[in-house]
Structures are given as C-alpha cells and as structure tokens.
Amino acid sequence: MSELVIELKGDENAEKVEEAVRSKPSARRLVIRIAANDGVSSIERVRSFLVNNISRTVIVYVEGERDEA
C-alpha cells in the first residue's frame, strides 16, 4: 500500500497535510509526524483534516513531550 509520511514543524498544520496529499493522491496511508511539545493539543493542528478524511488510513505521532494525565 502506498504510504506518505508528512512532517509538521513549527506552525504547520492541516493545510500542509492537504497539500502533501494533493501531491501524492495515490497514497492510501498517511503517517503524520508532528514536532511539538504540546501533546494532545497537537491534534487541533490537524483536526480539520482528520474530520474530513474518510478514504485513507491516518496515523498521527507527536514527537516531543506528551501531556501528563
């Protein structure tokens, strides 16, 4: 299966994900790596993409500190 790895740095967000998907529309699995120290809050940066996605497997990693419970 065609996989696409997308790294988000700084303020990069769902727009970068959408751009990456447009550049490789055949990708059926997306691995999104968010460089951030804000753990769960990172989801907000890609939420609009996640909510609209229905056709591809998406795996989101946050690289950095996770929030403590």
Binding site: L50, I54, T57
Partner: peptide, 13 residues
C-alpha cells in the same frame, strides 16, 4: 515502543 496519538483505519486496512 512509541505509540501513535491517533489512528484512523481506512477502507484498505
């Protein structure tokens, strides 16, 4: 090992 924060299982998986 590192766990992903979120996984969405698409139709091909």
């Amino acid at each position: 090992e590192e766990l992903p924060l979120y996984v969405y299982v698409g139709p091909e998986d």
